[in-house]
């Protein structure tokens, strides 16, 4: 009897480190960077951001050139504060949010569709820790990728707008504000995507819900008559971006701080629901 106790004790002592959070984070980062599909989505985001910025630079240049002959166009430019070029680097943001939001969905839904979840949660039975680690990985990479892509998009646009005699200052406070707020916004969309992927556990369903929230609802809310939907439309996540980046408050939109809070709620509520369901449901 005494020998068995002794044996068991020696086995216990030899048991090494367990899944502390930094190790789970490292594991999730390995998973993130070892999937070709993830890398393709990241690369296409950068490509779309830069490509759209170049197109927008060209289009804006054409428009400005016309304005020199057309007093009506000139008036339109003046109405926008005169700074036409500043939003060029973030022209592709609608597509970036779709791609990186889908990436958020896929990173979690693929765990369930492939069966990987059984390996993941057998290694780390405290299930919130892989979810948090995944959230950190996707949020940080979405933020960094959007920020870097926006900056590169700006650099690529510079010679084009220069050609039309327009001025684009990437170091201006409005340029920096646009870069940061758009990057935070895309990171938030990625987090919402991951929450949807955790709740729905299905790639197609998760991406469709994401598209529903970000592309279908805004249009539907505009089409449905009545003040309620007009008012509610302000609280959709897509419509929080403009108030947060506006130079001055535009009437009949949310204040910047209100918009930030609304976007925050759009992240916190689905993520909290995802956490509860992940803990409760069988894998």
């Amino acid at each position: 009897m005494s020998t068995t106790t002794l044996d068991r004790k020696s086995i216990r002592n030899s048991v090494g480190p367990g899944p502390a959070f930094h190790r789970v984070l490292n594991s999730e980062f390995i998973k993130f960077r070892t999937l070709m599909s993830t890398l393709i989505l990241l690369a296409s985001t950068a490509l779309v951001m830069v490509g759209f910025a170049a197109l927008a630079a060209w289009g804006t240049g054409q428009f400005a050139e016309q304005a020199t002959q057309d007093p009506q166009a000139a008036a339109a430019i003046a109405a926008q504060g005169g700074d036409l070029a500043v939003t060029i680097p973030t022209s592709g943001i609608a597509f970036a949010q779709l791609i990186l939001g889908s990436l958020g969905v896929l990173l979690m839904s693929s765990e369930f569709t492939t069966g990987m979840a059984r390996s993941t949660f057998a290694a780390v039975p405290r299930r919130l820790s892989p979810l948090l680690a995944k959230l950190i990985v996707v949020v940080v990479s979405a933020f960094l990728l959007t920020a870097v892509s926006t900056y590169i998009a700006g650099l690529v646009s510079l010679p084009i707008v220069d050609n039309y005699g327009l001025k684009l200052d990437l170091g201006s406070s409005q340029s920096i504000k646009l870069l940061l707020v758009n990057s935070i916004y895309v990171a938030a969309v990625a987090a919402i995507g991951m929450a949807l992927g955790t709740i729905i556990r299905n790639s197609a369903g998760g991406i469709m819900s994401l598209v529903g929230i970000f592309f279908v609802l805004p249009i539907a809310f505009q089409l449905i008559p009545g003040d309620f939907f007009k008012e509610a439309s302000k609280y959709l996540p897509t419509n929080t971006l403009n108030p947060m980046t506006a130079v001055e408050h535009v009437p009949d939109t949310l204040e910047a701080w209100q918009a930030a809070l609304v976007l925050g709620a759009w992240v916190v509520v689905p993520v909290a629901l995802a956490m509860i369901l992940l803990k409760k449901r069988d894998v």
Binding site: G18, M36, T114, A123
Partner: peptide, 21 residues
């Protein structure tokens, strides 16, 4: 099939191993 099949066997094991150093 408790594996993401787009990952290599080595990377799958590496990611699992990382959770426990």
């Amino acid at each position: 099939k408790a594996v993401h099949t787009s990952r290599t066997a080595y990377n799958h094991l590496l990611a699992m191993a990382a959770t426990h150093s």
